[in-house]
Simulated assay, not measured.
Amino acid sequence: MSIQIIGLARIGKDAELRHTNGGEAVANLALAFNYGRKGDDGRLPTQWVDATLWGKRAEALAPYLTKGTQVFVTIGDAHIETYESATRTGSKLVGRVTEIDLAGGGQRQEAPQASRAPQRQQQQPEPDGFEDSQIPF
């Protein structure tokens, strides 16, 4: 039985895009899902999920998956993994993103420079024969 997580989440840190040895793109995402009732501090509890987004979608969306951005996401094959670090042992919820849609709510970011067409306009001479580049101020 495969467990899915479906819902609205916020990106916890900018997506980390890397490539496998075989050349396939993969983006690591830290997703924060709020749930339940507000606590005494007025905040909703948060469940963090470490998820991966693969392939061309990872390459195309990584520049837009920045900290604070809201996404509507479906995570398939959700499971708990245990880990050990130098300071502690713990567990985390992980899965693979199967569907993702930007829902807004983060900082707006323009498309990467390489994918935008140059927007250079040729200057037209002024009617008096001077160009803007000839004016010293």
Rank of each mutant, 00 (worst) to 15 (best):
R120Q: 07
L44E: 08
I11S: 05
E81D: 15
T98D: 09
K92Y: 04
K56D: 13
G7N: 06
T89L: 00
L17T: 04
G90K: 03
F33G: 02
A32L: 00
A78D: 02
G7E: 11
G76Y: 04
A58L: 01
R116V: 09
I100C: 10
P112L: 07
F72T: 07
L53V: 10
I3G: 00
G90L: 14
D101H: 15
L17W: 07
H79M: 13
E126C: 09
D101R: 15
G39I: 07
A111H: 12
R96G: 03
R88V: 02
E81C: 03
M1G: 13
T74Q: 12
R108Y: 13
V97M: 04
A27D: 00
L17H: 01
G90C: 09
R120F: 06
E16W: 02
A78T: 04
Q124L: 12
S2W: 08
G39R: 09
N34E: 14
T46F: 01
E59R: 11
P125R: 10
G42F: 12
G12Q: 08
V73S: 04
D41M: 06
E110L: 12
R43D: 14
G39A: 13
F72E: 00
I135C: 04
Q113F: 07
D128I: 08
H19K: 11
A117R: 12
R57Q: 13
T98Y: 02
P125E: 06
D40C: 00
Y83T: 07
G22I: 01
A9V: 03
V73C: 10
D128L: 04
I11H: 00
L102M: 15
T66W: 05
D132N: 14
A114Y: 08
D41I: 09
I100M: 12
E126R: 14
E99I: 00
G7R: 02
L61N: 03
A32I: 06
G7M: 04
V26P: 06
A51D: 06
G12L: 12
T98C: 05
Y64W: 08
V26F: 08
F137T: 05
P45W: 13
A117K: 15
G68W: 00
T87M: 08
L8T: 04
K67Y: 07
I5S: 11
I11W: 03
K92F: 05
V97H: 00
R57C: 04
H79C: 11
E131K: 12
G12P: 02
T52S: 15
D101K: 15
N34C: 01
G55E: 07
Q47M: 14
A32Y: 09
E131R: 14
G39K: 10
T74D: 00
I135H: 12
V73F: 04
Y83E: 08
G23E: 06
L31Y: 01
T20H: 03
G105Q: 10
R18F: 04
F137C: 01
T89H: 10
L65G: 01
W48P: 00
